[in-house]
């Protein structure tokens, strides 16, 4: 270290700073969102359902930072609650869809043959119906509530994960290390569980994170169409939906804030997923190659 001629070689400057900033901002926003969603409802005694008809459609002010809606409900706590519901739907749906998609993709890829053909035709069948239409079909079979919405998202979102996992498994299946496992007496089950699945889990995890924003948008879309959560419940989709009327009258805040609450967290989560994807890049994993 004392040698003045010691130099540190920096990697190409163009490829460095910007993604880092993006990752930090994404992480900070995501942390803030999670904190808000987990802590605020308990820490701050605000009632998101409290109606005050005398104070309807007030623009943002010190008392109501996000303003109030057409029946005088404070939009700040409603937005936070709505985000909470949306995030819950997003995370739960992404998890379930990933588990189902990974299982189907792994079985199809690992077994091949007729099992692969049947499962993939099933995936094709589901994909051939427009997603929203399929989602609407599912929610209309049940009473409005959180779980039908989750189910609707799952039904439409496991397909891409199944495809990704199957493709990954297929490419891994021809690797010599799988040959070595077969030659070492490993059963089909063991090859799949010990060698193939662990290799695809990072990809599947990434797909799951990327799915959360999708799921949030799907929920919002369903609620906006009045098919998602019960209309009285604070959900971002519901709020934008019910604010449509006032937007035409020039009152911008009842749509703006819930809208921002849909867009900003989804961008943040997508940003984090992007950073994760970069980490998965094998070139970066081997910093030192001798």
């Amino acid at each position: 270290m004392a040698d003045p001629r010691t130099r540190t070689r920096m990697a190409d400057p163009r490829t460095r700073t910007r993604p880092r900033t993006r990752t930090r901002v994404s992480a900070a926003v995501t942390a803030a969102v999670v904190l808000a969603v987990l802590v605020v409802p308990f820490a701050v005694p605000l009632d998101e359902q409290a109606v005050d008809l005398a104070a309807k459609l007030r623009p943002p002010s010190w008392d109501h930072p996000f303003g109030t809606d057409e029946v005088g409900r404070d939009l700040l706590p409603r937005s936070v609650y709505g985000l909470r519901v949306s995030l819950f739907v997003g995370v739960a749906a992404a998890l379930a869809a990933t588990v189902i998609g990974t299982a189907v993709g792994a079985v199809a890829g690992a077994l091949g043959g007729w099992a692969d053909r049947v499962l993939m035709r099933l995936v094709d069948l589901f994909s051939s119906v427009p997603h929203l239409l399929l989602g609407i079909f599912v929610v209309t079979m049940f009473r409005p509530g959180v779980w039908p919405v989750v189910a609707s998202v799952v039904v439409t979102h496991w397909l891409s994960t199944a495809r990704i996992v199957r493709a990954e498994v297929l490419s891994l299946r021809s690797r010599p290390y799988i040959d070595a496992a077969v030659s070492g007496g490993a059963s089909r089950w063991r090859v799949t569980v010990r060698h193939l699945l662990p290799a695809v889990l990072p990809q599947a995890g990434l797909a799951a994170v990327l799915m959360i924003p999708h799921a949030i948008w799907h929920e919002s879309a369903l609620s906006f169409l009045g098919l998602g959560l019960p209309t009285h419940q604070a959900s971002l989709g519901n709020m934008v939906q019910s604010a449509r009327g006032s937007l035409l009258a020039g009152d911008w805040w009842p749509t703006l804030f819930p809208g921002l609450f849909i867009i900003v967290p989804t961008l943040a989560v997508a940003g984090l997923a992007g950073a994760w994807r970069e980490r998965l890049n094998p070139r970066r994993r081997s910093e030192l190659s001798l």
Partner: peptide, 19 residues
């Protein structure tokens, strides 16, 4: 029958489960 064979491949990187 499968395990009657020990197989060694050309590229050890590809023949070893990286985990």
């Amino acid at each position: 029958q499968r395990t009657a064979f020990g197989v060694v491949f050309q590229q050890p990187r590809l023949a070893a489960d990286p985990r």
